[in-house]
């Protein structure tokens, strides 16, 4: 009986851990997607003084990608 209880507790802990891990990965995936947009715009910036960020409809003067804003 005691042995079964230990196995049950181990399974519960493993299940909770797996669930948390999956949620974390999903959040991370969204972050990566957003980050890639930033990197895409920044990577094409030739002038270090001008930054173009996020996908948008503005012409970035230092890249060929349209962006949300520049500064």
């Amino acid at each position: 009986m005691k042995k079964h209880l230990i196995v049950l507790i181990v399974c519960l802990v493993a299940g909770i851990s797996l669930n948390v891990n999956l949620k974390h990965n999903k959040t991370r995936s969204n972050r990566i997607e957003i980050s890639l947009d930033n990197i895409e715009a920044l990577a094409n910036t030739e002038d270090p003084n001008t930054k173009c960020l996020y996908a948008g409809s503005l012409d970035c003067p230092v890249s060929t990608i349209k962006v949300q804003y520049l500064f």
């Binding site: 002038d47 003084n49 001008t50 409809s57 503005l58 003067p61 230092v62 804003y69 520049l70 500064f71």
Partner: peptide, 15 residues
């Protein structure tokens, strides 16, 4: 103006 570029400081207007 930054170098030969314009950096907007007002609003997004018409599209």
């Amino acid at each position: 103006t930054k170098g030969n570029y314009a950096v907007p400081t007002g609003i997004m207007g018409y599209s």
